[in-house]
């Protein structure tokens, strides 16, 4: 049986003027449905590029990316937008909430873009922000904003939740809360979560850890002993 995500021989080159940059070369891996995957690597290793390609924000120069049986590397702009709309939820380092919509509206608004979405109230309750639903992003702390961002991603009921350094802008305690929220969502909603970070200390909470270095896969490791977020120290 084929995996939920199959990345086959994916390369990404950027041509900036005369200079060609190899952001990814010949990357191969698979991810199963419901897995919590952490992509680990130093700055500039190519992990963000990988995530962007998986999320349909960028396209591979070569190779195939199959998600849920569909080869998204062949997708046109419009199909990619639909893919993002229906299949993917994003969580960014800097939240990227719509500043003129309040917490609830941010979630509801994203949910409404796709057909099979979850109840925004439920999701906000789940991330523990039912009290702050009427607040605007500027009236929320960083951690709260990130929780709204997660709620927004989850409410779309996507098959795939992509998180780009979600704890990067947060302090230790808040970061931990966000991580446990993500792992909880992974378990309760059975969502595939892919999280990228440069912090290897987070790695033990994942089912699978993919290490990226200089645009290549260094190794892929299945985690035998998954730690709870509370047990982490960094």
């Amino acid at each position: 049986m084929s995996s939920f995500i199959e990345v086959k021989n994916v390369s990404k080159r950027y041509q900036i003027g005369e200079v060609g940059i190899h952001a990814l070369s010949e990357v191969n891996f698979t991810i199963e449905e419901g897995e919590f995957v952490i992509i680990l690597g130093a700055s500039g290793a190519g992990k963000s590029t990988l995530l962007n390609i998986l999320g349909g924000m960028d396209t591979a120069s070569e190779g195939e990316v199959v998600v849920g049986g569909e080869n998204i590397s062949k997708f046109k702009d419009r199909q990619l937008t639909n893919y993002r709309r229906e299949k993917v939820g994003f969580v960014f380092q800097f939240y990227n909430l719509i500043s003129n919509l309040n917490a609830y509206e941010n979630v509801e608004f994203a949910a409404e873009t796709c057909k099979d979405h979850l109840d925004p109230v439920d999701v906000l309750l789940r991330v523990g922000l039912e009290e702050r639903a009427g607040n605007f992003p500027t009236q929320l702390s960083g951690g709260e904003q990130q929780r709204v961002a997660i709620a927004r991603a989850v409410a779309k009921n996507p098959a795939l939740l992509l998180c780009d350094e979600p704890t990067g802008a947060l302090d230790y305690q808040t970061g931990k809360k966000v991580l446990s929220l993500l792992s909880e969502i992974n378990q309760t909603y059975k969502k595939t979560v892919i999280l990228i970070t440069h912090n290897s200390l987070i790695a033990p909470i994942a089912d699978k850890v993919i290490r990226v270095k200089s645009g290549r896969i260094e190794d892929i490791m299945l985690n035998e002993t998954i730690k709870k977020v509370e047990e982490l120290e960094w």
Binding site: G55, M57, D77, R78, T81, N82, R84, R85, E86, F90, N96, L97, I98, S99, A110, T113, C114, R152, K156
Partner: peptide, 14 residues
């Protein structure tokens, strides 16, 4: 730009 990009990531067509 940022807000528009966010909208597009959320699945807004151009």
């Amino acid at each position: 730009t940022r807000e528009y990009a966010t909208l597009m990531v959320l699945g807004f067509h151009k």
